[in-house]
Design a protein around this nucleic acid. Sequence first.
DNA 1: TACCCAGTTTGCAACGTTGCAATGCCACGT
DNA 2: ACGTGGCATTGCAACGTTGCAAACTGGGTA
Lengths: 335, 335
Amino acid sequence: MSRANLRDVAERAGVSVRTVSNVVNAPEVVAPATRERVQRAIEEMGYRPNIAARQLRRGRGDVIGLVVPEIDSPYFAELAAHVVRAAEELGWTVLVEQTDGDPARERDLLDGARGHGVDGVVFSPWALTPAEVSRRAGAPPVVMLGEQAGFGHVDRVAIDNQAAAREATAHLVATGRRRIAAVGLQPHLSNETARHRLAGYREALAAGGLPPEAALEVPVDRLHHADGVRATESLLSLPAPPDAVFCFTDQLALGALRACADRGLRVPDDVALVGFDDIEAGRYSVPALTTVAPDKQRLAELALTTLGERMADRSLPGRDLVVPHRLVVRESAPA
Amino acid sequence: MSRANLRDVAERAGVSVRTVSNVVNAPEVVAPATRERVQRAIEEMGYRPNIAARQLRRGRGDVIGLVVPEIDSPYFAELAAHVVRAAEELGWTVLVEQTDGDPARERDLLDGARGHGVDGVVFSPWALTPAEVSRRAGAPPVVMLGEQAGFGHVDRVAIDNQAAAREATAHLVATGRRRIAAVGLQPHLSNETARHRLAGYREALAAGGLPPEAALEVPVDRLHHADGVRATESLLSLPAPPDAVFCFTDQLALGALRACADRGLRVPDDVALVGFDDIEAGRYSVPALTTVAPDKQRLAELALTTLGERMADRSLPGRDLVVPHRLVVRESAPA
DNA sequence: TACCCAGTTTGCAACGTTGCAATGCCACGT
DNA sequence: ACGTGGCATTGCAACGTTGCAAACTGGGTA
């Protein structure tokens, strides 16, 4: 026996299909007695609305897509948790897609090649340029997370990465560090986020009267622990190694921590470390990470409400929303 | 102008609706000339199939649900990444739901209260008893991840938790530890996984001629870093503190690491630590975690192929599949 | 010339739901 | 007895797609 549908229930309850639909969607318009009878029939037959039919008829499915480079990076995992929770609050369900930071995949997913039938998309780009994002048509509305500027009818929600990086670096300057490295540039990608963090880092150096030094700006392939280890090893092998490292993600910073330990260097005594993202693991590492903490919950909530508003009116101009962040000072770069 | 549909395209290309559908779904049956003309029309109009309509007609949507306690726990995040990748391989999309380990929410989600129109569910229970899982009807097929035994028409995929815990503990015994604690019991939940790991722990103690000791079996509320810190602090305050701690998750172990550091104890010299899950962060902590590594990729793949088989034939008996694991010996409990 | 076959294309109906507008019902006031 | 208004219920059509089976096409064969 297949799944019961409205007609089956209606027949059983001795009412019209429409009334059953009303009981499901607007119980208050149905007379109590009828409502109860229908409810019973629904339960007896184990009726569940057919979402596809509802979506076809209503024109929306209350499903949104979350497109991230990799769901298993702690930052994105934590963000996803917030997004899923916020979405549930709004009556939406979240469909997750991974791009692996591959520009081609980002493009495909954005074009809706796979983000099948979602009403909207929260997109965390890694390598896609703003121009590419804006030339999509017909696809569902998109909210961008990250540093890509709002464009056309695309909204953007992010923290002020440049300011955050500036503050993080300034903290190192203020606590007496003089050779401050930056780890996490991604020159091979048009990663706007990394670009802004680098800019903030340089600003703080300049403000502190410290000269920029190419050798202290270390590019990485990806943003994982292993990349942090490698980058830090190379920094520590320098003739004049740094006395502080600003990593563009906490994962990189945890890798840096590991690399320092392997060299017998003490953090923060010999080298101070600052991370970015405030992931859970950085709160419990030894030493705990000083880091930039974006308000991830706000980020998720704002992204979703913005998406909702755009779904309601797709002709809105692209908005550019900033979420607060703060520098959390812990052991790896104390006050 | 709304989104183009098959009829719009058909009109433009001068063919029937059905032919356009054929071009989209079975290009090989359409004559090359026609196909090309239709293709052009499709592109010109930016046609995208309406997934809801397709799903309604076909009776399936190629969407599966992934239900986990929390997507931001590293273990689940890594698992989710594998599931999403494996699903993509099979042409499916993944919808993520979080239960927060709340039995009521687990029940609701399992009942399909929210798992909107998914064709199947990969369910990682935290607290639901097997009996509760089996009395679902009408809802989509489910594959359980974890220690709940396969039941009725529900499949299960998991590692052998008891054997894994036994091996982990045996490693500590073999390397000369004599007071081995276990952290991670969840007596307040019917958490089968924790139960099995505890059983394996006790077996290894017995095999090593070590007496079990209630004070060394520490329950936790949740399985996060903070719980590991708390549990370890209480252990280290014992009149006779342990010389090794087996944590039921790597997150707990990282918390334990932190707690040891705060006490000025050295790992592994003073206290050896073993974790469980082999999360990325444990590979780069200082010291790196000795841990049980489940084959997460196999786990995900097997879960999905099993789910696929059950979708194809829902009358199959419940299967109980075991995925390999291995003990990874690192610095926190060296050989 | 009639016929047949393979390769293409087509029309019809149905999937299960909800928007819309109309209908039925009943109590109340006149 | 009759009209009125409000509440409850209903029928119809449509959302966009695909399964099914029929219909058409052209060239080859009997």
